[in-house]
Design a protein around this nucleic acid. Structure first.
Lengths: 212, 212
DNA sequence: TGTACATCAGTGAACGCGCGTTCACTGATGTAC
DNA sequence: TGTACATCAGTGAACGCGCGTTCACTGATGTAC
């Protein structure tokens, strides 16, 4: 109730935003109402408009924040690692995101085609996120030319996004896990044609039940 | 208005269904209302419930119909072709689907993650559709063992679904086209490691502007 | 430092709207004789 | 085949509901002197 100090207000804004990030990624744009978000942030609906212009603007900020978190997490996990190992880690982290874990999600997978129905700002952010993901991979394909690395990384990004999407859509857990495992195997086969990868063994044909 | 003959009523049902298929794939589930569908089918809202139980049931039937159309079209396009050529055609057809063309779409790409928020029936249909797509590919990977073919086909399905999803999300046309082209190159590199494919040349590094 | 007043973060009821669905109704179709 | 009546495909207004957003209000915070 009543007025809060400026720093408290800034915290409130952050709380609304981080709540929205989680909820949009968990449930999608259409299924999350302003009341849901504000209630989850411990506030009443009206207060929202002291901090954001509209649901669309919140969605745009939430997308930006989600990508920042995703890339920050990935960068920190691969810092100082040699390219091959870093590549494998990126792929594992990306494919490891799951609605069941208290994880960091990628909007491209978790909101997917829904993003294509959003406004230009959101779509531009999504396009940028895809490019960053592809560049992150391409920068570590050191054995290829710039153009080849970019093309390959783009293809691998499609595989990762498609696999996480399909795993989420799929009705049963076993199928979901096999989709993720098969995608990982396909990517490893492309990244490390000769051996089984930088340190872990590739499991491209056998049991689907490897990654969570 | 008023009562129609039984065959007319059956036609009406078909018209509602085929209209719904197009609209759900074009705009997504949440963005299409019953009024939209009925108006596009040349009817008023109330009539819908003479033919379907609910929007959810219509969505389930629309998904089933969309998959049937997709696979029928693909089967007819590859009938009698040798495996390698058929594989390339499947991939081209799948990646060639686009909101801009009066085309046949795949629910996995066009509704994507939205399907994960639908009821069990719809998710089961989607899971089935993914399995059929993967099997269609796997059956033509004749140089691999059954298990290897299944695993590879699953990975390639993820790539195709992810590429079409990303191409639709992406804000600018050039990026969308490069995503599809790079996915096609990645898949061809996996399918035909030695040469450039069965008849067309692989364009895996150069211009993004090849497919529509 | 103390006082008077403007500001504004947050409340919660209310607004208008479009949603999925229901329902009384119409009159041609289908059926029984 | 002709007549009487039941059926039901399709109409379009209406229902209840939840949506995104607005707004009058409260009272602590921030500011001016």
């Amino acid at each position: 109730m009543m007025r809060r100090s400026r720093s408290e207000a800034a915290e409130t804004r952050e709380r609304i935003l981080s709540t929205a990030v989680k909820m949009f990624l968990d449930r999608g744009v259409a299924a999350v109402s302003m009341r849901d978000i504000m209630a989850a942030a411990g506030l009443t609906p009206g207060g929202f408009y002291r901090h954001f212009e509209s649901k669309e603007q919140l969605l745009a900020e939430a997308n930006g924040a989600a990508f920042e978190q995703l890339f920050a997490m990935m960068e920190s996990q691969i810092a100082g690692k040699p390219p091959a190992e870093a590549l494998d880690r990126i792929v594992s982290l990306y494919l490891g995101q799951s609605r069941e874990k208290g994880n960091i999600y990628c909007p491209l997978s978790m909101m997917g085609i829904e993003l294509s129905h959003c406004d230009e700002q959101v779509r531009a952010l999504a396009t940028d996120g895809y490019k960053r993901l592809a560049r992150m991979v391409a920068d570590r394909l050191t054995h290829l030319s710039k153009a080849e690395a970019a093309a390959t990384a783009s293809g691998l990004a499609s595989t990762m996004v498609g696999a996480v999407t399909l795993a989420n859509v799929t009705a049963d857990r076993a199928t979901a896990l096999s989709i993720l495992s098969n995608a990982q195997a396909l990517i490893r086969a492309r990244l490390f044609p000769a051996d089984g990868g930088p340190k872990t063994r590739a499991a491209n044909t056998r049991q689907p039940r490897r990654r969570s």
